[in-house]
């Protein structure tokens, strides 16, 4: 197990290198630079040269890449083109908010998906089952920003119940967390239901019933315990969904997190920030996937990790 974890951790390094290489190449393939001549504010060639030297963009691209990787290994992600402060500081300001939003959304998703999935599996083909499956289908299909629009219209513009710009108070957090958690939650509901349906038909559940256990003990102690194993594996991709969802939701609700920062830096072509946030996102996703694989191996000893 330990060897497996170490090997997986080591595998992160080459993958991160390629992620960096791809993003870096794409960024430098693009023509123009943030210091292009602006007809309204002309800069002398001298100034442009000086700025280019300062940010190191006067070097050939491969040299720039090697320098960049060297700096990243030492924890230096460069200086933002547009804000003129170290990228690490900018990310540091946003990451807390993003984690807060993401964890809230995940908690919300788990809180509604598990009960809903279990109930619809236990009451298969009843109106309860159909209703929750319809909700789950809608939740996985309608994109978050569209749901957000309907909610903002209803609770923000029409009823004036919730603010929809900014971050801070719990009222600010309700809608973003709800919208962000909806899609992963809906997906988890479907998985929980399918997995629970499978579990209640197993022999060990029949055994538990036939030896006279109460319904509650059978469902929670025997069926659910085993049904949750596949559910656990979905939390990895769900986290990825939360991350990609967060930059749309954060932009929409003006939440000052990493996601909004990412979108802004893309629009402004602030490459150091784009590079750093992309690397961070990729890293988080790989860690999430690795965690899930490890948890999976611990939960289900039948799975042999290779």
């Amino acid at each position: 197990m330990l060897r497996y974890i170490i090997r997986r951790l080591l595998l992160i390094i080459p993958t991160m290198f390629f992620v960096a290489l791809i993003t870096f190449s794409l960024a430098h393939l693009a023509p123009g630079s943030p210091f292009d001549k602006n007809p309204n504010r002309p800069m002398s060639q001298e100034t442009i040269d000086r700025i280019s030297r300062f940010y190191g963009v006067d070097q050939p691209v491969p040299i720039q890449f090697i320098t960049y990787i060297g700096n990243v290994v030492r924890g230096d992600f460069g200086i933002s083109f547009t804000r003129r402060t170290p990228v690490v500081d900018i990310i540091g300001q946003g990451i807390g908010t993003t984690f807060q939003l993401g964890l809230g959304a995940l908690a919300f998703a788990l809180a509604f998906s598990l009960p809903l999935g279990i109930i619809s599996a236990l009451k298969q083909n009843t109106i309860v089952d159909y209703a929750s499956m319809l909700v789950a289908t809608i939740g996985t299909t309608i994109p978050g920003f569209v749901t957000a629009i309907f909610l903002i219209y209803l609770f923000g513009v029409t009823l004036h119940l919730l603010p929809f710009v900014g971050w801070g108070s719990w009222q600010h957090m309700i809608m973003p967390m709800f919208v962000l958690g909806l899609a992963p939650g809906a997906f988890l509901t479907r998985i929980t239901r399918a997995s629970m349906l499978e579990a209640v038909r197993q022999d060990y559940v029949r055994t538990a019933r036939s030896k006279g256990l109460g319904e509650r003990a059978v469902v929670i102690g025997h069926a659910l315990k085993n049904a949750l194993i596949p559910v656990a594996t979905i939390i990895g991709p769900a986290t990825a969904g939360l991350i990609t969802g967060s930059f749309i939701i954060e932009s929409l609700f003006n939440v000052p997190g990493m996601g909004r920062l990412y979108v802004i830096s893309i629009v402004q072509r602030d490459y150091p920030t784009i590079m750093a946030t992309t690397l961070l996102y990729a890293f988080l996703i790989m860690i999430a996937n690795l965690t899930v694989d490890i948890v999976y191996g611990v939960l289900d000893p039948r799975i042999k990790v290779r």
């Binding site: 794409l26 693009a30 969904g241 990609t244 893309i266 072509r269 996703i285 790989m286």
Partner: peptide
């Protein structure tokens, strides 16, 4: 797979947007 799908599309589209 290390990139979330949408993140990758956004990077490609955003960087090559002015070509």
């Amino acid at each position: 797979y290390a990139f979330p799908d949408l993140l990758f599309v956004i990077i490609i589209v955003a960087t090559l947007r002015n070509t």
